Simulated assay, not measured.
Amino acid sequence: MPADASATARAEPPAPLPNRVARLLGVRIPIVQAPMTFIAGATLAAAVSNAGALGIIETTSPQGRADLKRVRDLTDRPVGANVALAMRKDPSVIDLLVEAGVSTVLTSAGDPTVLTGRLHDAGLTVFHVVGSLRNALKAADAGVDGLVVEGVEGGGFKSARAASTLVLLPLVASRVSLPIISAGGICDGPSMAAAIVLGAEGVQMGTRMLASRESPLHDNVKNAVVGADETGTVMISVPGLPTMRVLRTPAAERVLATGRPEVGLDGIPALYFDGDLTASLANTGQVAGRIERVEPVADIVHETWTGCRQILAAAGARANGW
């Protein structure tokens, strides 16, 4: 793909939207960038949206909330936002989203009944992030438009009792009729195709996007992700810290060895933006073990979507021959 792939993607004529997820999000390609705190800002989200997928702005940090406005200088494509309900229950956030021209909201980390009705009243589409069948059923009862079903192999905050995407996704798909975006373990065409076969109509990528050229992370962190193998992440669950999947760094190893929060989350800015891998814990998914290089977002989106369709077509041809 040429170096100006983002410009090429912007110039492409609109194509028929392939499924319910794409239609709800208003995008050509049913791929969503994960709402990573401090990372999911205007530059990354605009690159994803300009590539034909859906960029997401996180609203947990002050910078993220400021980027809701700044992103409009970088793209005229649909852009979504995340609301972590445990941190932002105040309905005033809805005014901020509407003013920014956001059309899709991913809610997470809380009870979807808190804001779903008010988000709908404001004309917003709501996908809720779930990590269990119980929470998926609860979100469906709350009236959300769709689900982001996240397996335990994904990076960031997790339940210590969560299931993998291979188990959780088909289970939820068999019990809930809502359109599903699969998250956790997705980084390319084969993994997206697998999610589609298991019942999803779109995918969310976090670790793959944080290791992109447009990601604001320091190169030390990106290179650590690229250098990780399939055992390169660990689940941390110790008093004083939320349970989360992080990159297997010396800092993470010390926390595991002592069972104590040897480093805190207040060091995340130094980790992310100064490249100090000892400052905190780097939220990263197991799929880091399959990421081989830092690439432009437009290439990641194009190759994932094209590869997914090619793999599904080839699988269909093989099945027809059985």
Rank of each mutant, 00 (worst) to 15 (best):
R208C: 08
V172Q: 08
I181K: 02
A200M: 00
L166K: 00
I181F: 03
A194W: 10
P170S: 01
S164M: 12
A195R: 06
S164N: 08
A173H: 04
A200K: 01
A160Y: 03
G185H: 04
T165H: 04
R208Q: 11
R175Y: 09
S191F: 04
T165Q: 10
L198H: 02
M205R: 08
A194M: 12
M205K: 02
M205L: 11
L171N: 00
P170V: 09
T165Y: 04
S174F: 02
P179M: 12
V176F: 15
I196N: 01
Q204L: 15
G199I: 12
P190A: 10
D188T: 09
P179N: 08
S177K: 13
V167L: 14
R208E: 06
L198R: 01
G184K: 03
G185C: 12
A194N: 11
M205Q: 05
G185A: 14
S177I: 10
A160N: 04
L178S: 14
V167S: 08
S191K: 00
I181L: 14
A200L: 03
M205D: 00
G189L: 09
G184C: 12
A162S: 15
V197C: 11
A193S: 11
I196L: 13
A162D: 07
V197M: 13
V172S: 06
G189I: 07
M192T: 02
L198T: 07
R175V: 09
I180C: 09
I186S: 11
A200F: 01
L171Q: 06
P179L: 12
A195T: 08
R208H: 06
A200V: 04
G199S: 09
I196P: 00
P170R: 00
S164A: 14
P190K: 07
A162V: 07
V197E: 05
Q204Y: 02
P170Y: 00
V176M: 14
A193P: 02
L178Q: 14
I196A: 12
S182A: 15
E201Q: 10
S182M: 10
I196V: 13
R161Y: 13
G202K: 02
G199P: 05
A163Y: 07
L166M: 11
T165R: 02
L169F: 12
S159F: 10
C187Y: 13
I180R: 02
G199F: 11
A163G: 03
C187T: 12
R208M: 13
D188L: 12
G206T: 07
G189K: 05
L198F: 08
T165I: 11
S182C: 15
L171T: 13
G189R: 05
I196F: 15
A162T: 10
A160C: 00
L168Q: 04
A173C: 06
A162H: 03
S164H: 05
S174L: 08
V203R: 00
L178F: 15
L166G: 04
P170M: 07
T165E: 02
M205A: 12
L198A: 06
A195V: 07
S191E: 06
A183E: 05
S182V: 13
A193T: 09
V197Y: 04
R161W: 14
A195H: 05
L171E: 12
R175M: 14
Q204M: 13
C187K: 09
L171I: 00
A193I: 15
G189C: 06
R208K: 11
T165L: 14
T165A: 11
G206P: 03
